[in-house]
Write a protein that binds this DNA or RNA. Structure first.
Lengths: 216, 216
DNA sequence: AAAAATTTTTAGATTAGTCTAAATTTTTAA
DNA sequence: TTAAAAATTTAGACTAATCTAAAAATTTTT
């Protein structure tokens, strides 16, 4: 088994690796709130365990074993988030920190039974896909609202920023997962948008539109 | 907050402290599968934090703060065991190790919501009382079957041995929590007993009778 | 109450994860 | 294509928790 800390490194490398091939030491340090020197030490350890491919100064990628571990942590994180929201009535902006702890509970049996108990959900409360027990993960073809044109509509299906501040803002604007929206107007000066949700019309900044994902 | 390890020490001291006033270093070492020298180091740390009363060579007791922490761990352990059995259909002999991990999840909010979700159970699957959110714990007036006389009857309400082997044996004999039993006969040679459960009659050893607790 | 046995503590190492500061390598830019 | 900047690694140290072996205190036995 891997330690709590090793699991966090693998998860961070997985998330950073989605956007670019080789992940750098400083990026990992920033993601984990630690220092580059500490990251280097851990990368050596993970490379010894054959969980990552690492050559000095060149950044890292996960091996398939490393990816398997990362996906199992992500599966646990997202299933626990679903549990917290759907069964214990937490709000979507309150679950992240608790799930960060729960994701390290090791029992595979536990997580599979939890999955069944909840009816095998496919997406977590933020719209992120939940890997299945074999580590298969659906790829989500979502677009930021900022990139769809005027008069196009779609269903809110995910967020890029998971911070409580952003999620609370979305709640206040009624921009929650599952809502159908339509882009009514795009301001050419500051790229802010006017969109309609149900029968309301709301004004959102470019930054918000960048972090709000819809399925067309 | 306290570390995972500190919490385990406090819990062990609490459990050992039920039977005798001052708990010794070796007893703690045995309970935690560690060495006496390691225990001494930790006792100094816990004493510095004012979680235990400790004088060299004299053993320890919990301070009221230490007891509060221990009871909160025990509350979490027992609520998670209840969840695993009642919601996820684990058997009573399968839940201990998973609960040992879950009990260290720190969120108070989580555990209180879990408690409400399950309808505020009073006893865990082994019949042990669950402390409430203020740390109040019911004291259980139970007797081992070995100490009740012939022809007395009562309801199985707890166990002294929580090992999977013992619990599986009880399952096989239908001696589970809530069953009403009656002591029919006591063998004066080896102190084994014949007891009736529902409409069956079963023969149990003195050792089993010692570890099976009933409410009269 | 002294000797023997047991329990507990101290001393000194070890491992995992972290840090700062200095050195090295790679990348960028003049 | 060399100098400057940025990224990364190494060196050396620290903390938490553990260990073994030896020393000290306590308890038991005679």
């Amino acid at each position: 088994m891997n330690t709590f800390t090793e699991e966090n490194y693998l998860k961070a490398i997985y998330h950073l690796g989605i956007r670019e091939e080789n992940v750098g030491t400083n990026q990992i340090a920033a993601a984990l709130n630690t220092k580059a020197a500490s990251v280097t030490d851990m990368l050596k350890k993970l490379a010894d365990k054959e969980l990552i491919n690492y050559t000095r100064y060149q950044g890292v990628t996960l091996t398939s074993e490393g990816e398997k571990v990362a996906l199992s942590i992500i599966r646990k994180h997202r299933l626990w988030e679903y549990f917290l929201v759907e069964k214990l009535n937490f709000k979507w902006d309150e679950v992240h920190d608790v799930a960060e702890e729960l994701e390290h509970i090791s029992s595979q049996e536990l997580i599979d039974r939890l999955d069944d108990f909840m009816g095998n959900p496919k997406y977590d409360p933020h719209g992120d896909p939940i890997p299945d027990s074999k580590g298969q993960i659906r790829s989500h073809e979502l677009k930021p609202v900022s990139l769809v044109g005027v008069n196009r509509s779609g269903v809110i299906s995910g967020v890029r920023d998971h911070s409580p501040a952003f999620l609370q803002y979305l709640d206040k604007m009624c921009l929650t997962i599952g809502k159908k929206i339509k882009v009514e107007e795009i301001n050419t000066y500051d790229h802010s948008l006017i969109i309609s949700v149900e029968d309301k019309t709301v004004h959102i900044s470019r930054e918000v539109a960048n972090n709000l994902l819809i399925a067309l």
